[in-house]
């Protein structure tokens, strides 16, 4: 197991190097270049030149890259051009928000998706199957920002059940030691704050859950179907085992394998979806900040955030693979 983890970590190195070159090249390929990003409404060519000299943008490219890499290793990504604050601080501020949102969305997708997918598989070929599958496919085909707006219009504006924007009630004063607002309420002994944070989480999480939900329904259904056709299940049936036992013992266990993988891969999807959902709900997480950052050429932010996202993506998939190995001994052997 340790050797497996070590090998996976080694694989991270070429990915990170390649990505850092890509990111570095991307910033330099932007029209206008980085210097203008620093200057607001009243930029003059002289000011641009001056900034370029200050930033060392007039030095040779490889030198700039080596410096960039050296700082990146020390987690020094410079300061965000949007806020003038160190990128590392922006990460500490925004990653908890998006992680909280993504976990909530995944939780919704899994708890709703697995039972639905299982149900569809058991009723394979019936109208219920078709309805369940089609309905879950809607999740992938509705533009997520449109869904977010509709949810907000109905549940927040018309019905007034849930808040429209942000992560917490603006009028409330709560402490945020960890940055995970739901957790913070528990840590600081302020359950009202946790509840408040939870209500702010629901609508964006439901909107965000729509995409992984569809995938999880389809995957659960497909893998349960496959397993149902496999020999050991047929054998079990032939042996006259009770339906319920078969389900628990064989079908669901084996069906969980691909689903676990999907959940790992969904991280990227959730992050991408978060860009749109966070914008609609003014949810101050990673997604919104990065989307703005890309449009506004906030390249220190983009470089830092994408590197961190890529590392965590690879790490999450590594963990998924380990879990996969625990669930399925065959993988460990090969």
């Amino acid at each position: 197991m340790l050797r497996f983890v070590f090998r996976r970590l080694l694989q991270l190195i070429p990915i990170l190097l390649g990505l850092s070159i890509l990111l570095f090249a991307w910033v330099r390929a932007l029209p206008g270049g980085p210097a203008q990003a620093l200057l607001g409404e009243r930029a003059t060519p002289e000011a641009v030149e001056q900034i370029e000299a200050q930033l060392g943008l007039d030095r040779p490219l490889w030198e700039q890259y080596v410096q960039f890499l050296g700082r990146a290793v020390r987690l020094d990504f410079g300061a965000s051009l949007q806020t003038g604050q160190p990128v590392i601080e922006e990460m500490a501020r925004r990653f908890p928000a998006t992680i909280e949102l993504a976990i909530a969305a995944l939780l919704i997708a899994v708890t709703v998706g697995i039972p639905l997918g299982y149900l569809a598989a058991r009723r394979y070929g019936t109208w219920l199957d078709s309805v369940l599958v089609s309905a879950s496919l809607l999740g992938v085909t509705v533009p997520i920002f449109f869904l977010a707006y509709l949810l907000k219009l109905v549940f927040a504006v018309q019905l007034g059940w849930l808040p429209t924007a942000g992560r917490s009630d603006p009028r409330a004063r709560a402490e945020h030691p960890t940055g995970f607002y739901v957790l913070d309420g528990i840590v600081t002994g302020d359950p009202a704050a946790s509840w408040d944070a939870l209500t702010h989480l629901i609508l964006p999480a439901v909107a965000l859950a729509s995409i992984p939900l569809a995938v999880i329904v389809r995957m659960t259904r497909a893998s349960v179907l496959t397993v149902l056709h496999e020999d050991h299940v047929r054998t079990a049936e032939a042996k006259g085992l009770l339906a319920g036992t078969i389900v628990r013992h064989h079908v669901l266990r084996n069906a969980m394998l691909p689903v676990t993988t999907v959940i790992g891969l969904q991280m990227g999807v959730l992050l991408a979806g978060a860009v749109l959902t966070e914008t609609v709900f003014a949810f101050s997480g990673v997604g919104k900040f990065m989307a703005d950052g890309i449009v506004q050429r906030d390249f220190p932010t983009i470089q830092g955030f994408i590197l961190v996202i890529a590392v965590s993506y690879v790490l999450v998939n590594m963990i998924v693979d380990i879990v996969y190995g625990l669930l399925d001994p065959r993988v460990r052997v090969s």
Binding site: L107, T111, P115, W161, L162, D169, W195, D196, L252
Partner: peptide
Amino acid sequence: RIIALSATAGLLAAAAGCSGSDSTE
């Protein structure tokens, strides 16, 4: 555990139904 997770989803759904303007001001 799956059942437990489903229960969480139920809680979330219930939260959607009754939160209202729960401000701590």
